[in-house]
Structures are given as C-alpha cells and as structure tokens.
C-alpha cells in the first residue's frame, strides 16, 4: 500500500509539532523517519496510525482519503517504543489479541487462531515462549513479540516507534536484520522512527530527515550522505 501525506500539520495547543509536511511513500518501501527528539517524527507516525489526528492536511492510503479513518479501520501494525505488551496476558494471548478482537463474522476459528499464532511465534524464532508473561522476557524477546502481535492482524502497513531504542547494541544489530527480513518477506510498507542515523542509513530504503516539525531532506541513504541539502542534515548525519 502506498501512503501519501499532503500538507499535514499538527498543533498541540499553541505548539506546532508538525508544520505542513508532504511525503510520498511507495508501496513496499522501508522508510526511516530520522531526527532528534522534538522533530515531529513520532507525531507523524502516530497520525499515520490514527493515534493522533492532524490539525490540517490529509493522508491517503492507495489514493483513498484516510484522514478521518478510525484507528481500528486503518489496520496499521504498530510497534510501540516500550512495546506496550499486555502484561496480564501470556505471549500467546498477546499475539492472538488482534485476531480475537475482530468482528464475529471475520474472526478466525479457535484452531485457526492457534495455527496463526504458532506460525508467527516460529517466524520470530521464539516458538517456545507462548505461555510466558511479558515481564519474564528479555528486551529483545519483547520487541519480537510486539512485532508478531502487530503482524497477526495482517496489517496494511507496519509502523514502528523507536523499535530498537531500548535494546543493547548487540541485540540491536540482530533485530535490525530480522526486521529487514520480515519486511522483505511480507512486502509491507514499513515506516520506522529513529534518532540513530546509523540505524536509519543501514536499514532503510529511503530516509526522511526531520527537524523542528519540518522535513529537511528525503532521499536514499547514499544520496543523503553524498549531497546533504543543509547544514543541519550534514551535521546530523556526520557521525
């Protein structure tokens, strides 16, 4: 699914989190929103998910206006910064949640839910942990469970908020590769937010650099490195 963002702006009271920004995300791309904190990248991601609504501007999914679409109807697989796993449910229940929440007509049978959750847990290479609770898992395991839970609803896009932020360096490298693999296997349009330029440059097809609620530059990692459009981009990507 391709996503078009047109003149999207967001104000929180007197504060402008997002100046009108426009961005076109091609179907199946892996995009990084890169910027320091307060640059508006998370706000943009949350608007795509339907967790926030823009003050003005519009969002199109495959050309159709989705600006006022309800959060449930968007079917965005969202991975939260601290994963937001349901701590009173087992891993299995967490992954099954979205399937059980479907309207009765579309809800898979119990056996089908079992099968799909098992397959997802195999995909994230944690087939044995279905009966555990989230706080019995390591940070990396939690992140993968959150990913499986988001994928369970067969989302139209995958949105990740600082997916590697809470992990130590080695786990981070592994999970980067597994996100890339999952993206390549599912072909989902994927947008992730990060403040780590190395992560963005290494993982994404297209990097969107943001600062102070504006988009500074959009481009392939190599192009941005070779031709930064502003001092800010040069300084931010110089590390």
């Amino acid at each position: 699914m391709n996503i078009d963002i047109e003149d999207l702006a967001k104000e929180f009271g007197p504060e402008r989190a997002l100046h009108p920004v426009s961005l076109s995300i091609p179907s199946g791309a892996l995009i990084a929103l890169l910027g320091p904190s307060g640059s508006g990248k998370t706000t943009l991601l949350r608007i795509l998910a339907g967790l926030e609504f823009p003050t003005s501007g519009c969002v199109r999914f495959d050309g159709a206006d989705a600006t006022g679409l309800s959060i449930q109807a968007r079917r965005a697989g969202f991975v939260f910064q601290n994963y937001a796993l349901f701590r009173h449910m087992t891993v299995f229940e967490n992954v099954a949640y979205g399937l059980r929440a479907k309207p009765r007509r579309e809800r898979p049978t119990r056996a089908e839910i079992d099968r799909r959750v098992t397959r997802l847990l195999e995909m994230i290479q944690l087939p044995e942990i279905g009966s555990r609770y989230p706080n019995q898992l390591s940070g990396g395991q939690r992140q993968r469970v959150a990913l499986a839970r988001a994928l369970a609803i067969e989302p139209r896009m995958l949105l990740l908020d600082e997916p590697f932020g809470a992990l130590d360096a080695r786990v981070r490298k592994d999970l980067r590769q597994s996100l890339r693999d999952i993206h390549d296997r599912t072909g989902l349009t994927t947008v992730f937010v990060t403040h780590d330029q190395e992560e963005a440059m290494e993982l994404a097809d297209l990097v969107v650099i943001m600062s102070m609620g504006r988009i500074e530059q959009i481009g392939k990692p190599a192009d941005i490195r070779a031709r930064p459009v502003s001092d800010f981009v040069r300084a931010f990507t110089a590390a």
Binding site: L51, F80, G98, A101
Partner: peptide, 19 residues
C-alpha cells in the same frame, strides 16, 4: 500505551476497557 496498542489491533473502545 497498552490501550493504544489494543486499539491499533482493532479492538473497540469497550473491548479495550474490558480486556
């Protein structure tokens, strides 16, 4: 955030509250 997660997974407000 847990409520937000439930909503993104398609749960209604009432279901989110209950579960």
């Amino acid at each position: 955030t847990e409520e937000e997660a439930a909503l993104t997974l398609g749960a209604s407000g009432w279901r989110t509250f209950l579960t």
